[in-house]
Design a binder for these strands. Structure first.
Lengths: 186, 186, 186, 186
DNA sequence: TCCTAAACGAGACGGTACGTCCTGTCTTTGT
DNA sequence: ACAAAGACAGGACGTACCGTCTCGTTTAGGA
């Protein structure tokens, strides 16, 4: 029995989280700040999310912008290129959010699992699908472990995202796609 | 003029930082905890390090264990394999430290710069040297940007270190070395 | 709305303040010490009292022992004598508390106002009542400003309390009462 | 034997103490602040004065302004009036200094003794001399303890100085002198 | 239509750590 | 030996958030 969870409040909290994130940056996020901005009680946040990072993860996944690319050009080269350019293109608060979530995942093993299962895995699976389709077409050398290729792609992506020493844009996506093909194409 | 910085205290603080890190993990580190364990005043820490992460970075770099590998087998394949196996082999608190430092670098732009310049750059430069020697021997396709190869190697390393979904050991080092050679060798 | 102030905690803090005062003396009082002894958070003290001295003032006023004397013997001489002996008789931590509060009032103008209004004024008013009753009975020379007499009484009291060069007891109370009568009686 | 105490430095410290006192008020005084302003080392202050209050006491006593009045009009009424008006007239930082010193004396028993002996006693003795001269002339009722009269005078002075509820000026000095005469004159 | 139970905003609570300030001591280098 | 400079251990400050805990209030079913 009893009152049901308020969808309105849930949205207000996710919105507030993204707003705070934009204004103060990830390191400036606090439960109190989000609750105050959302006009919600802190308890309401603690009731529904295990940690701050989970709120942010929910907020991000709730936003349409965060679709996983699923290119189907008909050949591995095209699919890889499209996947990588689409992935490298993300902008705005998105990058700051991803950086923050990864930092939290590193510091908090409980959140790490949620992050892996709800975010990382989906991306890996999408790329894996692209590679498997290529393999089925004989475009991939069977001697190369596709999981390693997935690591290479997301490794470069995250490394640059976290360190910030090199750009992440369409051109870089294409360059990396070309390298992966050189390494694993037939 | 005035009293000089106490090297004894400096060491006590770095030691205490590593001890606390081992006992409580990176997320459990506090300035107060380190100061108390070192028998030092907090002010002394604030006087010499801009942030907690800088203390940890100093502590890590001060320990001999973190030598950057510099293999010289005479050919690119051997050098790459040795570099990667040596790099992938690091153990003990080292990994936890690196994960924590990267998380801090993500959350704190000021520390990020120190981390990049004092840690990341040294590793990149070492690998770059290996690649450049290979290129000089004609073992590397000039069409491939060596910086991208560096990103691939450290990208995979960090990605696995942070996500923890796949092992980091000698075998993996060799496998990645082989992939890099396939991608960029002549 | 929200949770109400905890009366239990309030009492624990006032008790802790008096205990600390007895153990360490006024100069040894700290917010941290009181909070720790009361099992309270520091914030709780800061939330309800503007300064340490206000806590002590509250603690003192909360204790029944500090009743203001209001003698009614029927004549000025008796009332004055009773008022002064009762006032000069206070003992135990009371004196240490008063000395400390006066010191704080001197150093902190904000607290000074609270001290004047909540403590000093009540005492002055009580004595003034005694004098006014005497004046109504024609026992006081109208040429003498009763406020000055109040200053004389409390001046001597505080001067001895602060300097500690002379005793404060029943005999001294009677002696001062006699002097005031000589100065202002008819 | 070794370098002698620098009188120049001593003066610089006393000057700095008074300057800081004027700028920040008594509660804002610190050893560090005085040392910095004097261009002196903290150690130098610790070497020569047992506490901050002793520095201030020295500074005040070093200044000519702080002469003890010694009136000689030839009769008790005139002497008392002159003594009290001169005493009540003190102005400027003097009052703030006195208030601060009394607060310190209350909080620090060690300084209290120095304060009593070096400041309070001199004032009491001066007034006592005035009274004793009056007594010798037969102008004082032998039944009244002159020490109590001293307490009355300085009690009213300090009480008003500390509480600040009533003025301290020539008129008040005369009024109090008149009261004392009424109480103890023949 | 009431009853009851959960969710809600609000905000006090016990805690922990923060980064700052000052204390009193010590070391170092002049003078 | 005294002095300026300033690092040191220590301790309290006042603040910010944490996660938990009452408080009324609001919003549902189920009786």
């Amino acid at each position: 029995m009893g009152r049901r969870r308020s969808e309105e409040t849930r949205q207000a909290i996710l919105d507030a989280a993204l707003d705070e994130l934009t204004e103060r940056g990830y390191a400036g996020l606090t439960i109190e700040g989000i609750a105050a901005r959302a006009g919600a009680g802190k308890q309401t946040i603690y009731r529904w999310w295990p940690s701050l990072a989970d709120v942010v993860l929910d907020a991000m996944l709730d936003r349409a912008a965060d679709l996983v690319p699923d290119p189907t050009t008909g050949n591995l080269a095209g699919d890889l290129r499209d996947f990588l350019t689409a992935t490298f293109r993300q902008r705005g608060p998105q990058r700051e959010i991803l950086r923050g979530l990864m930092a939290q995942a590193v510091l908090d093993p409980v959140f790490a699992e949620a992050f892996r299962e709800r975010f990382i895995q989906a991306r890996r699976a999408a790329l894996r699908t692209v590679l498997d389709r290529g393999a089925a077409r004989g475009e991939l050398d069977p001697a190369v472990d596709p999981e390693l290729l997935v690591d290479v792609v997301f490794g470069v992506l995250w490394y640059r995202l976290l360190i910030g020493h090199a750009p992440l844009d369409d051109g870089e996506g294409e360059t990396l796609a070309a390298l992966v093909l050189r390494a694993a194409g037939t």
